[in-house]
Simulated assay, not measured.
Amino acid sequence: MTELLRTLFVATPGTSLHLDGDTVRIYHPERPGRNVLPLVRIDQLVVWRGVDISNDLLLRCTADNRGVTWLSRNGRFLGRTGGNQIGNPRLRLEQARAHDDAGRRLAIARAFVAGKLQNYRQLLLRIARDAEPERQAEIRSLATLHAESLSAVAGCTSLTDLLGIEGAAARAYFQGMPLLAPEIPPGRTRRPPEDAFNCVLSFGYGMLRVAVVGALEQVGLDPYIGYLHGVRSGKPALALDLMEELRPLLVDRFVLTLFNRKEVLDKHTTRDPAGGVALTDEGRTLVLERWSQARERTWRHAELKRSVPAGLLPNVQARLFARHLRGDQPAYTPWIAH
């Protein structure tokens, strides 16, 4: 169990959560004692498969507009419940109008991709500073490729071309992963991940997705009407859009640090008969503890002209996007690390 920034994470199988007055009572048969947490301290719950929630607690969370998210043992999003939708319906109407306007949709999608590519580049340059000369040159060459992709994004005139630029840059980035952490294999694998690095990376993206969906709902936006990612039933397209600019520094850097420090050991992952790799209970505990610490780190935010904890960046960007849709600022400005 981990509590951070008003989110309760519960990952241990066999745990059950119950309503006890105005508190959550957390029970596990192998951990005797009364473990309770005041509901007033919690905005959302994130639970993994194998954790049970009582009906009384679910109903109370729904009544309080407190989100509950379920994840697979490897951190893949399974589902979410919440209360009444928050926010002005006029904002959601404007969100849909922007999606239906080809020019506005492309401009918004370009901003999300530009933020992602710039933060890819920032991460690469940060790592290159401490690398030995030969590896440093290769990493900087990869960063230059992303700078060129950024120029192509600025002149892009169709969503199809934009997705092509983004996809090519992402493939080059993941092929270059061994330059950033020597024991990491090149390429990206998922559903299932085929190695420990991709396993932890998918887990981190799952954590970020939970945070971004919650932030969008708090602002009153519809997580399912996006601009870069296509609108499809069950797919939170806007959440996936907003995640793009946040992935490189909030998740990729976090996971690379774990592997460069050799904190993820053989005992933290397990391989199933089909070849997929999943975190063990001990592995999930480790990653969640480190994730909680990473969310407290502050990052400079140019738009706000101050530092913001990583855990609050999704909320800040969701509010800035809502301001753009309302017409309070002419364009959406992605978060770029400085």
Rank of each mutant, 00 (worst) to 15 (best):
L279F: 00
V47S: 01
V316L: 04
T333Q: 09
L78I: 06
G103Y: 10
H338I: 14
D22A: 14
A237Q: 02
R73T: 14
S151P: 04
M243E: 10
G220Q: 10
R97S: 02
A170H: 12
R92N: 05
Q122G: 15
L150G: 03
R73W: 05
E263H: 02
E303L: 12
A196E: 04
A107S: 06
E289C: 15
H268G: 03
V36C: 10
G234I: 08
N65P: 08
V36I: 12
R297K: 06
M177I: 10
L242H: 07
A239S: 15
A318S: 07
Y205L: 10
A181E: 14
L265D: 07
R41S: 11
D281Q: 12
T7I: 03
Y173F: 12
N84K: 03
I26S: 13
T298N: 06
P182L: 12
P38V: 05
F321I: 04
L45P: 03
D252R: 03
Q136P: 13
P223M: 08
P38T: 09
D101L: 10
A143G: 04
R247M: 02
R60G: 01
D222M: 13
L106V: 13
A302W: 04
Y173G: 03
T23W: 10
A337P: 05
T23M: 11
T12V: 14
N55R: 02
